[in-house]
Amino acid sequence: MSVTQDDKALLALYRHPDTREKGFTGIVRKYQERLYWHVRRLVIDHEDANDVLQNVFIKVWKNLEGFREDAQLFTWLYKIATNESLTFLEQQKRKSAVSLSDVETGLGNKLRADSQFDANKLEWKLQKAILSLPEKQRVVFNLRYYDEMPYEEMSRVLETSEGALKASYHHAVKKIEEFIKNS
């Protein structure tokens, strides 16, 4: 699937030196919210999400020149955002020299530190359940559950077969169901 007409116009603006910033700003405005939430659901904290998102768009700025239009811009952006988020979590792990479970506990603490947090509400229980999933499974669940991304597109973002993604999502749903039932 190639870029949409709207994306084509934005890319054309970006490629012209006089309208480069205008084209880039258009791309940021179009995708910033979707990418923000994708990143935020993975790193939980707003400030962390802001840092990661800005890095994502700085990378986009640097590499957009070489973006091939036979790919979809949306998919390419999601791929960068996913990689940046997972790299951020990896760095957090290395910085604090803690185990994966400790990082998950850290993310859980960030969740509980949210001013709106209410452990009795189902939507917060669901957030805690999602955090109990392994990182990659969490990415798959979020992309499917919140972004309603088709498996075919997810396959391009995560460079994983559709079958593996379906299995991963099914496992994730079962684990979350179990978590909510027991909480």
Partner: peptide, 17 residues
């Protein structure tokens, strides 16, 4: 897959400034 999860409204409790 999960009637329980299917019945939960898909709300996003996290807020953005």
């Amino acid at each position: 897959l999960s009637p329980l999860l299917g019945s939960i409204p898909r709300l996003q409790p996290l807020r953005v400034p």
